[in-house]
Design a protein around this nucleic acid. Structure first.
Length: 504
RNA sequence: GUCUUGUUAGCUCAGCUGGUAGAGCACGUCACUUUUAAUGAUGUGGCCGAUGGUUCGAAUCCAUCACAGGACACCA
């Protein structure tokens, strides 16, 4: 039952007492005329004034009481708004008669949202404060806040009740401010380059554009199932067919897979497509994009990430096959021989699925021996065709594609390629995917004939790229769980009956 | 999915080889007009995650389940 907690009960009683004495505990006529940050900036000169005060100035600030120290006839409280923290000095004799004793001391407590008006002064201890002559309760908090010193540290509570986490942990607010800035800067960067922001469907008849298990939903009026999109790729390419030459979309993708420190069922990515360009141009624009982000976020390009240190000035580039030997230390002579790779993997106790092609095995080698070693930003290029169903073949070597993935701190951050625009080749690759799907690979790409038809009308040579925004923000904020960069990460329901109610 | 560690008051945490449930903060009451996690006195507050088992007796031991953290696997 709601409100059964005894502390909540007590505070509800206080709200009732306030009502009875004519004070609305949820009053909304705020008179705020300054944020706390502005107050602190404007009054930074007070320390140098006579008596360390200026009674001619008057400000009204609002916020949540984070700390309260009642000392008889005077009290100090720490007030926090979005912009900062300010100490308020409240004394009995500066307020209307009986207000301090009957209202303030009895019914105001930590967690309440209040408003205080008064003049700036500096205390004996040297802290700029506000000397209150007006005091108003704006919102009574009936639930007590977590402990004032340790705050809230339990990760489960922090994720399930993010509002509490945000109230108690200023650095968490900071992380999400950076996240917001990254998205806003990303949008501006691409707009300034002449890209058009578009919105493509979230509900797809065929889950395409990536290899992943989709979520399924149902459209009642049409009696058909729809898939939450796993990637916007195929729709964005249709727009290139239609004549838009540079498009991007920043939005959510949904994948019905496991959850861990780097995977949430819904995650945010930017995908952009650029006609008359190749993956080589994407390497350049990616470097430029990172420079732009660091400059506008005002971040040093040498960033710590856990035990690692990442130099965002040091971008390097190496073909996948070459990286197997030079970075992964896989013997040079085996990397192009299926049987020798299988033998090698076996000797390293790495088991792989049966019937993998050479390209897939090279991918396995890369995952096992190279990926984790890529700390500074590294473009791995020239992926095998077998693991790149939507990428254009190299004109020089038809077994590899014009593709790169960007790795930072041992993690994939971006995936890009010159797009496959030969409709017949694309059709054949879909067919190969469908065969491996029939062979048991439930994440293989489905046939999308509508997309093939679109390609048939001709898509200009195009390069396209996807960047995982969540993982990028993790890098920039030194966070090691995707849940720490998602305001409301996916959580299992706490109670069993919630979990199974759908089945009944 | 596997392994592993957790789950005790609103919050942060103790609780040893099984023997009446503990502290700090918060909250109540009292004192205190320049404090800084204010201070001093005093008091209230528990389905010990859930269900079974072992035992004279379980927060503690065992099993199962739920949720969470970490690692691994999967997800190119």
């Amino acid at each position: 039952m709601a409100f059964e907690n005894k502390f909540v009960q007590l505070r509800i009683e206080k709200a009732e007492l306030l009502r009875q004495s004519g004070i609305n505990p949820y009053c909304n006529n705020s008179q705020r005329n300054s944020t706390i940050k502005k107050y602190i900036n404007v009054n930074s000169d007070i320390a140098n004034k006579e008596n360390k005060r200026d009674e001619h100035r008057h400000y009204t600030v609002s916020g949540r009481i984070k700390l309260l120290r009642i000392m008889g006839k005077a009290s100090f409280l720490q007030l926090e708004d979005e912009s900062g923290v300010l100490q308020i000095y409240v004394a009995r004799d500066n307020l209307p008669e009986d207000f301090y004793n009957d209202v303030f001391k009895k019914n105001i407590e930590v967690g309440d949202i209040i408003e205080a008006g008064g003049y700036p002064f500096v205390t004996n201890q040297g802290e700029l404060s506000l000397h209150a002559s007006e005091f108003k309760l704006l919102t009574k908090a009936i639930a007590p806040l977590p402990e004032k010193f340790h705050g809230i540290t339990d990760k489960e509570t922090r994720y399930r009740k993010r509002y509490l986490d945000l109230i108690m942990n200023a650095d968490v607010r900071k992380t999400f401010q950076i996240r917001s800035k990254v998205i806003s800067l990303t949008r501006r960067f691409f707009e300034d380059k002449g890209f058009l922001e578009v919105e493509t469907p979230m509900m797809h008849p065929i889950a395409g554009g990536a290899n992943a298990k989709p979520f399924v939903t149902h459209h009642n009026a049409l009696s058909i199932d729809r898939f939450l999109r796993i990637a916007p790729e195929l729709y964005l390419k249709r727009l290139i067919v239609g004549g838009f030459e540079a498009v991007f979309e920043i939005n959510r993708n949904f994948r019905n897979e496991g959850m861990d420190a780097t995977h949430n069922p819904e995650f945010t990515s930017i995908e952009f497509y650029w006609a008359y360009k190749t993956y080589k141009d994407l390497i350049e624009i990616t470097k430029e994009y990172f420079r732009y982000l660091f400059e506008h976020l005002d971040l040093p390009t040498y960033l710590p990430y856990g035990d690692l240190e990442i130099d965002f000035n040091k971008f390097s580039e190496i073909p996948l096959i070459k990286s197997l030997h030079t970075i992964g230390e896989v013997p040079q002579e085996i990397v192009n021989d299926k049987d020798k790779i299988l033998e090698f993997l076996k000797s390293k106790n790495i088991s792989v699925k049966n019937n993998l092609s050479l390209g897939q095995l090279q991918g396995e080698l890369f995952d096992a021996f190279v990926e984790k070693k890529l700390i500074n930003p590294t473009f791995i290029t020239e992926y095998p065709v077998a693991i790149s169903p939507l990428a254009r073949r190299s004109d020089i070597n038809p077994e590899i594609t014009e593709r790169f993935e960007l790795f930072i701190a041992g993690r994939e951050i971006a995936n890009a390629f010159s797009e496959l625009n030969d409709p017949v080749d694309q059709y054949e690759r879909f067919k190969a995917q469908v065969e491996s799907k029939d062979g048991g690979d439930d994440e293989a790409h489905a046939m999308d004939e509508d997309f093939i038809e679109a390609l048939s009308y001709g898509m200009a040579p195009t390069a396209g790229q996807g960047i995982g925004i969540d993982r990028l923000v993790m890098l920039l904020t030194n966070e090691h769980s995707i849940r720490d960069v998602l305001l409301f990460p996916a959580m299992k329901p706490i109670h069993n009956d919630e979990l199974h109610q759908e089945e009944e």
